[in-house]
Design a protein around this nucleic acid. Structure first.
Lengths: 113, 113
DNA sequence: CCATAAGTTCGATGATCGCCGTATAATGGA
DNA sequence: TCCATTATACGGCGATCATCGAACTTATGG
């Protein structure tokens, strides 16, 4: 427990990803928004890039839920922290899931009105 | 509010299905198990068919969460209640999502050991 | 008419969640 | 060295969640 956890945050391995945890992480609108924006950007993004109407500590909370469930990866880069989607791991473990979620997320409601 | 709600339970229309609600409904292991068994059976199943180690009232709760999020459909049939997956609606609204969840659910962990 | 079976409803409870504000590092520049 | 920026950690608060047991409803059957 005394490894350099400050440098390397804990990420579950690909084989450790659990479907309920991932689904739960994605079941929050705010986190869904984060994932959507992350998927839109092809490069790792600093946390501050994503704009949400919540306190910064709440952002940290959401990022942690996403990271601990294996949806995103966070790496330190100077004073900021680069965040990226673990698309390959998610695709390997839950094929089609992320694409389905991202595709659906873009269409909130096909309302005729 | 005085319609025959006892006969016809409330189900959200296809257009009303919301991704966060569906993901949340699927993020519980017990409910995931229900969905998995429902997908395995090609016919509507009575609630009692699905075996879970929880109290009957808890079952009712889980079925309600699944129904109100639009994952399943429940219809009365005498003394029992037939439950079925809303596969077509889910596929139309969130293409690939259910398949991804069901496919992933069958493989808890591809551990080499 | 009464018993049985299948589900629901109704609290209650302990846990988790989403959110906040504040305090606290860690880095980079003046 | 001091300060601004970036993000975490630490409680705390109200809401929701998963679970239970017990009482209730609704149909089927003797």
């Amino acid at each position: 427990m005394s490894v350099d956890q400050a440098v390397t945050l804990h990420h579950p391995a690909r084989e450790e990803l659990e479907l309920p945890a991932v689904l739960h992480a994605l079941s929050d609108p705010q986190r869904l928004q984060i994932v959507r924006e992350l998927a839109g950007a092809s490069e790792p993004q600093p946390c501050g890039t994503i704009q949400l109407d919540v306190a910064k500590s709440t952002m940290t909370h959401h990022f942690r839920v996403l990271r601990e469930s294996g949806v995103i990866r966070q790496e330190r880069a100077g004073t900021t922290k680069l965040t990226s989607l673990r698309q390959a791991d998610l695709d390997a473990r839950f094929p089609g899931l992320l694409d389905a979620v991202l595709g659906s997320a873009k269409v909130p409601a096909p309302v005729g009105a």
